[in-house]
Amino acid sequence: MKPNKEREYMASDYDAAGGLLVQSILAGDTKVDNRERLGAKVPIQLFQAMRLVALGSAMEDMIGDGSRALVYQAGQRLGNVLGGAVMPQAEGDLDKYVGLIQGVTQELGIGFVVIDKVDLDAGEINMHLDECVSCAGITGMSAPICNFEAGMVGGLIKTFVGRSVKAVETRCHAIGDKTCGVDVKIL
């Protein structure tokens, strides 16, 4: 079969760009090349436009209910990448791992990760994300909308435990809850 050169090229470029991004995140870079005047930070509304329009309603328009899986898996991929990057520093210790993740998510303005319950024997981890970047300021929704973040949490836990997990957003600021809760089941 003739390989699709263009597709392979795009995939490897995104992978390479993602690698650079993770390095920059872990290094805590506050300066970014080619952003001399605008700086490294962008308004939360831009992130929400990317998340809720580009990776939300636009996806729904194109692939309908398939967007739920796509958004979750996209979040899971990000969780895998971030988790994989801090794993060596955690030295297999869950508390250390969570501490590192809390640092990164706070630094990036994703939100404040709080662990509510860890029961590895039962294969359950429950946590919540205060000031969640995706749904801050969004109200009146009919169901939780932070499927991307649920996927990200799933990816982070999956990376640590080395097994498949399923994360579900059980509470969401966008439906009137005070915080976004995510329950993780290790499969």
Partner: peptide
């Protein structure tokens, strides 16, 4: 994991 997501996306795109 990859198969499951691809299946739902494939079905969603066909439905749309």
């Amino acid at each position: 994991d990859a198969l499951g997501a691809a299946v739902q996306i494939m079905f969603g795109a066909a439905t749309r």
